[in-house]
Design a protein around this nucleic acid. Structure first.
Lengths: 207, 207
DNA sequence: CGCTTCCGTTACACCGTATAACTGAAGTAA
DNA sequence: TTACTTCAGTTATACGGTGTAACGGAAGCG
């Protein structure tokens, strides 16, 4: 029993935690690091507990002391990705300026974030994994990422803000997803220019 | 030797082909049918030769008489999907009318095609499969699907036709991909309306 | 110092791709 | 009809993946 935290109530801080729990977190972090590497290189399908174990010099069943299942680990990574993107978007939106400035900043950081690790973006907004069901927290985080966009479009008394926000979102995603999925490779044009033009045209008459 | 076709030169027609080849094609078609079913239900990751063999009442190694590998079968399905979409788009574009009419028709049939079998759409334009490399014919077919869009935008002497075509494409894909990937589920709005509005606004001043 | 916790091991079951070698039935030609 | 050839489908096997069960031992803890 008492799988989580030994004597003290579970503290997120590193202090006040025994050596056992400390070691445990260290191993978990190492697993996550290897997992991200695999994810970046081969996508969600390439995530293999056995391969991670091999890289860590232990056997595969040992990993089940740290993660209930492969799906469990994948869920953690997905949530971490959502949280990271949410933070990035919120920072961009929080920089202030006109709605136009904020939305341009949001679009820019999302594209940069996606290009930095294409598989991570596709993990969130690409083809859903076969039998995987997103936890409630995922949709909540997706909403949180979307919120700054809605806010920026909610200037004045505009009943169209939801519609304009969704349009902004689908257009941004349209360019980014095709770009990171490699569907533009070999075509003689600049995705960055297309993206910038698309953002500009979508913002239109925005102040 | 002479793996393909027995005595006569390989004819695509069913006649003039021996009973062996006839049976062979029949089995291949049955495999493809089961494969499509699996693909529609669980996506590319759910495609299993072993499962198909089981459903057909034979053992898995027997299938290797008909397809060199799982990837080989998957490639066939992808190319078939491209061909099907190309045909659908060409029919829509060939119905004539103004460029506006044609592009509206193209957008509509693509969305319908995607919604009819979401995994098939994502197979072409979603997250690329791990180690899979698209054959040359795939990119050629992708170009063929895109061509009618370019044609419709190439009225008058418009140097922006390529840019407008790409914008059309990314916007159509933006809405469709999020829709078929289920990222709109639970949100209180109508994807069809968003799509129609997006197409309308993208066509803008088109004649 | 002794007890308990828990990490990592091996062994195993199951699913998946893929190859090798064998069997036998069907087609083919003398 | 008979003899030969082709080829579908089988079993056995290797390999990689997830996941469970049972065991050993080292570390933490009172």
């Amino acid at each position: 029993m008492a799988d989580q935290a030994g004597t003290a109530g579970e503290q997120s801080a590193e202090s006040l935690v025994g050596p056992r729990e400390r070691y445990r977190r260290q191993v978990q972090d190492e697993v996550r690091a290897h997992a991200w590497k695999q994810l970046a290189e081969a996508g969600a399908a390439g995530l293999s507990l056995k391969a991670i174990a091999k890289q860590m010099g232990i056997t595969a069943p040992a990993l089940y002391r740290y993660f209930a299942s492969r799906d469990d680990l994948l869920t953690e990574l997905i949530l971490a990705a959502y949280r990271d993107l949410a933070q990035v978007v919120e920072v961009a939106a929080g920089a202030g300026g006109t709605p136009r400035d904020r939305l341009t900043a949001i679009a820019t950081v999302i594209r940069d974030w996606a290009r930095r690790d294409p598989h991570r973006y596709l993990l969130l907004y690409g083809t859903p994994v076969p039998g995987y069901a997103a936890p409630a927290e995922a949709t909540e985080l997706a909403r949180r990422i979307f919120a700054p966009v809605r806010d920026a479009f909610s200037y004045g008394s505009d009943d169209q803000s939801m519609h304009r926000s969704l349009t902004f979102w689908t257009r941004v995603h349209g360019v980014i997803s095709l770009e990171v999925a490699g569907h533009f490779t070999g075509m003689p044009f600049d995705p960055a220019g297309l993206f910038a033009a698309e953002v500009r045209s979508t913002l239109g008459d925005l102040p």
